[in-house]
Write a protein that binds this DNA or RNA. Structure first.
Lengths: 249, 249
DNA sequence: TATTATTGTAACAAATTGATACAATAAGGA
DNA sequence: TCCTTATTGTATCAATTTGTTACAATAATA
């Protein structure tokens, strides 16, 4: 895969790609009762960035986002949604990409396509933390999860992109039933409530939360129970998209 | 203003503009109890299209949208929101723009920038029908309001763009208080309810609607009353964004 | 077997929304 | 002037949803 960026880099005019347009994806996961985001650390530059990419000139923009998501997580069939276009002139800053190329021993000409102004389409994805396999690209030292409340300093406006993604997630959490995408296959009601509380950043009432979730009719109670501490064991649930959930009564 | 498109047309490489990126705005108005959309009719081509434009290479994308909105409605200070990026390869069709240029007596070279693939950022705007002054651009015969349920055949994927804009409007109508942007300065409760019913495409309960709207605390009752038919005259209200509305009790 | 912590759910209160009813008009006509 | 008619503003009560409290049912552990 080391060839990939080499090709971008040496393709000075950006042949085969849509000029000036990029994709940035905020990939959310949930682990240890914390919201996580997948970040790349660029080689030698000390820069952290969101997974992103460019769009082939014969490719749908949404498909390019899928491609990026898939290549960083090894996952398919993921909740992925456009949420905003970041198009301010002020985000134009060739510095970081120039530094990355130079760190690779390549000195790009001033009119290199990657050093021009880019507009970025922001996507956010919700993935099962335990299923994703963070995979760095060829210009990154690492691809890893970072807790939302202890993020490193990020490239360009990537922190703002994350903030806006989180806002969008908060607003859409109740309307659409998307929270389940962040859960493991089987989970307790406590897990689910913790997820909601973390995303919305507020305490929820246990009894009301449980009543509401069960009332949605999309949870199937897995017959098995949990083994843990000195107390009643919670049920495990799984999400049932369609079909009739088993009778839990 | 006849020079404007002449400049785009003769600027074969698209100097000074972001390549491959455009803006389309769905401008909603409300009149005669109908939702309206502002459309342009292109000269000699029989094509109808959404107001749109291109982005200067030193301009914020959102500002370009403002510019488009302002030049078609002569309005400033309008509710304007990004809602989706239309980036499918299948929307790539140089035919319409070629036809427009040819109708103007200009035969563009095959590699003309306007004939390349474009990604479009969709915006929707909510305007006071009575305040907007529909203004055609230099390649249009007309700029006019069309009822949403009797639209002419539209260029490219513009019908889909409108559909998606309406969906977005429906979803955001209750959360944000944006409906008022479609009203005239002063309006009756009946007017407002009619607007909501038209957008949401369903009947609302009069008493509950009135109670809810008044409960928001953002309506000021204008002392005047309406003069009309053989019945009690409704109050006129106006929207108060901040500040404390007058005591209506 | 008692203790402890947590779960599932019942039971009731509070708040919100749905539905109905009715007094208060503003014309127009007897 | 006084009915008639249609519509508005709001009160009232019912139905539904959400907030709160309480408690029985466990699953370890002592």
């Amino acid at each position: 895969m080391n060839k990939e960026f080499y090709q971008l880099e040496n393709n000075i005019a950006g042949e085969g790609f849509l000029p000036g347009l990029a994709i940035d994806t905020v990939i959310f996961g949930f682990h240890d009762n914390q919201l996580k985001v997948l970040l790349l650390a660029y080689k030698n530059t000390g820069l952290y960035a969101l997974p992103g990419g460019f769009i082939h000139d014969n490719e749908n923009v949404n498909e390019a986002a899928w491609r990026v998501l898939q290549s960083r997580t090894a996952l398919t069939n993921i909740y992925l949604e456009q949420f905003y276009v970041f198009g301010n002139y002020s985000r134009y800053d060739p510095g970081p990409l120039k530094a990355i190329m130079q760190a690779r021993g390549y000195n790009p000409p001033a009119d290199h396509w990657l050093l021009k102004r880019f507009i970025s389409v922001g996507y956010y994805a919700l993935v099962d933390f335990t299923k994703a396999i963070p995979t760095p690209d060829e210009i990154s030292d690492s691809c890893d999860w970072y807790s939302l409340n202890e993020l490193p300093a990020l490239m360009q406006d990537h922190q703002q992109i994350i903030n806006k993604a989180l806002e969008t997630l908060q607003n859409e959490l109740d309307q659409k039933l998307i929270g389940f995408n962040l859960m493991t296959e089987e989970f307790t009601m406590g897990d689910l409530q913790s997820l909601y509380e973390t995303i919305l950043n507020k305490k929820l009432i246990r009894a009301a939360f449980q009543r509401k979730m069960l009332g949605l009719g999309i949870l199937e109670r897995v017959a098995k129970k949990w083994t843990g501490g000195a107390h009643k064991a919670p049920y495990l649930y799984k999400f049932v998209s369609d079909g009739v959930p088993a009778d839990n009564s």
